[in-house]
Design a binder for these strands. Structure first.
Lengths: 148, 148
DNA sequence: ATCTTTGCAAACTTTTTGCACCAAT
DNA sequence: ATTGGTGCAAAAAGTTTGCAAAGAT
């Protein structure tokens, strides 16, 4: 009952939006809820659609602005899939994305799998790679097997 | 002197453009030359600029169309750097790109460095990754060291 | 009352496309 | 004479921005 700082992921996002004089609106809360509910990746447009039933007037630019705010705080980040729109997800989703260039299927891979490369790049080149910012394109098992 | 099929990289590109009834124009040849001369990465717009002195009338859409043609044949491919325009380069440039998100510096890394990851993805997920299609964003040594 | 967020429309960036004309074969 | 390439302008897709009105504190 008397719970000062909640660990409920939605509340964490809400708190971030409220920080520094930020206001909480129905639209922003809905965005936060979808972000948490959708463990997957989704584009700004998909996020808008997911919220449209309850908030038909929410505008795409508001979605972008809210995502931008959450990204600045580090709670959310976006991933570029080949061409087309970026996908957004919670930073806590500690995984990498494999996207099939042929059928669009997305596979999640634990980020730890890429650690060896990060280490190598850091050791050899002094480069701090942020590998999660990009998805890895390629061919999924089904499409790689097909003779198309 | 009597050299039927040249191995000069420019001639390879020219031959590809000529294949299947394709015509050779001054603009196309200039694009091929710049592509070979610039071992690095460059955007369509940069390519246009690099050619502008000799072919001021060459249009950006022509650059895109020529690059597209060469990509279909597999001689050229493009890489997405974070936001902004894609970078184009010869496929034979067998390397991966590290781009500093802070200062924009580009480091080349032999593609072989990423082979272990490719193998792992293939083995564990049956996924055929085309890692070169994307650049790896992050922080270069200078910017990673800075306290900014 | 104040200061933030919103909706809207319009700009913006990168890339693609339709079309009539020109040029390479 | 064909067929394919070109310039142009306009569309397309994704994202950002300026502004006045609405809303949260």
């Amino acid at each position: 009952m008397a719970q000062a700082t909640s660990t409920d992921p939605v509340e964490v996002l809400v708190a971030a939006l409220r920080a520094n004089g930020g206001r909480m609106t129905a639209g922003r809360r809905a965005i936060a809820e979808v972000l948490v509910a959708t463990h997957g990746h989704l584009t700004a447009e998909e996020l808008l659609a997911a919220v449209a039933d309850r908030h038909p007037d929410l505008h795409l630019s508001t979605v972008y602005r809210t995502l931008e705010t959450l990204e600045e705080v580090g709670l959310v980040c976006h991933v570029h899939f080949g061409h087309g729109a970026a996908q957004w997800h919670l930073t806590s989703d500690d995984r990498h994305h494999l996207v099939c260039e042929s059928c669009g299927a997305v596979t999640h891979v634990p980020a730890s799998l890429l650690e060896p490369v990060r280490d190598e790049l850091r050791r050899t080149y002094g480069f701090e790679a942020s590998l999660r910012h990009f998805a890895t394109p390629g061919r999924c098992p089904v499409c790689a097997g097909a003779t198309d």
